[in-house]
């Protein structure tokens, strides 16, 4: 009533096979939960002519653990994942990120695949998935392909998915023996978009950073890994000065903009503060430094 929604042709798929069959035609927009899509349609950011409703695809709602990996059905609702004990235990970063996402009402409808495919630079599920080196399974009627999540995001609201594909599953390797830390910096304490979000996982062996993984949201055109900082630290001694030195290099990994939520300058500062906090805490976790 406040908005005039465009007219469209609507189809509802009852199973995956049917969905992929429809997608074959190439010009269908997928409605997985619709929480982003419907608002986009109201404000004129998207106006699809054809919508394929896949909300009924129960077969896409699952969480399975197998061989050190987690397999998450793309149609899983965010709230289902938040309440899932396996996710909480095996993928704490993802669990923490979802806890901070939107609100209960939205998490009950929104899907994990939807959050990924919407490809907002602020997509909160992305940094954890980047940390875990998750892969997305993109399926079409002619088969499936698997893509590392880092290659899936191309830019703001741009992804590598084609119009006849559907994000069927996310494959997430778990991390054992890692310190894992997540923080979402918003403008209030709940139900808010991130100004900066950061996920960090690291391992220190014999006082040396044996692995460091850093992923950041809202500080680049897409969610990114901070490879420069990671490489600066890997193999280095875990101490305060190494961390401080490495964190300064984050400027090479990110390119924040100034917008209504924060200035680029602030995002730089906050990113560095968050990374230092995470890395210091990691160091402490492994019994090093006094951070």
């Amino acid at each position: 009533m406040y908005y005039k929604l465009p007219e469209f042709e609507y189809k509802r798929a009852e199973n995956l096979h049917q969905a992929l069959d429809v997608l074959k035609e190439g010009d269908w927009k997928i409605l997985a939960g619709g929480t982003d899509l419907i608002l986009d349609m109201k404000i004129g950011r998207q106006s699809p002519k054809k919508i394929l409703d896949i909300t009924r695809l129960g077969e896409l709602r699952y969480v399975r653990a197998y061989n050190g990996k987690m397999f998450i059905g793309g149609g899983s609702r965010l709230q289902e994942l938040l309440e899932n004990a396996l996710v909480k235990e095996k993928l704490p970063l993802l669990s923490s990120a979802i806890y901070e996402m939107a609100s209960w009402q939205i998490r009950n409808v929104a899907t994990i695949a939807g959050n990924i495919c919407n490809a907002s630079p602020a997509a909160d599920s992305a940094p954890p998935l980047l940390i875990y080196d998750a892969k997305v399974k993109l399926s079409s009627s002619s088969g499936s392909r698997t893509l590392p999540i880092s290659e899936f995001f191309l830019g703001p609201r741009k992804t590598a998915i084609s119009s006849y594909e559907l994000l069927e599953e996310i494959e997430v390797p778990t991390l054992d023996g890692y310190f894992q830390w997540y923080y979402k910096l918003g403008r209030r304490h709940a139900f808010t978009l991130s100004v900066v979000s950061a996920a960090v996982a690291l391992k220190i062996e014999n006082g040396i950073f044996s692995d460091v993984r850093i992923a950041l949201g809202s500080v680049a055109p897409k969610p990114v890994r901070a490879y420069t900082v990671e490489n600066e630290l890997k193999g280095k001694e875990a101490n305060v000065s190494e961390i401080e030195r490495a964190v300064e290099k984050v400027a090479e990994d990110i390119s924040p903009i100034s917008d209504v939520r924060a200035s680029a300058e602030y995002r730089f500062k906050a990113t560095k503060a968050l990374l230092k906090e995470a890395l210091f805490k990691g160091m402490k976790y492994f019994g090093g430094g006094s951070g």
Binding site: L39, D53, Q79, I106, N108
Partner: peptide, 19 residues
Amino acid sequence: CTVLLDGKPVYSCNIFTVQ
């Protein structure tokens, strides 16, 4: 606009009736 959909709260302003 919150309503319960199969027992779960959702925003009724952000869901198509056909859903």
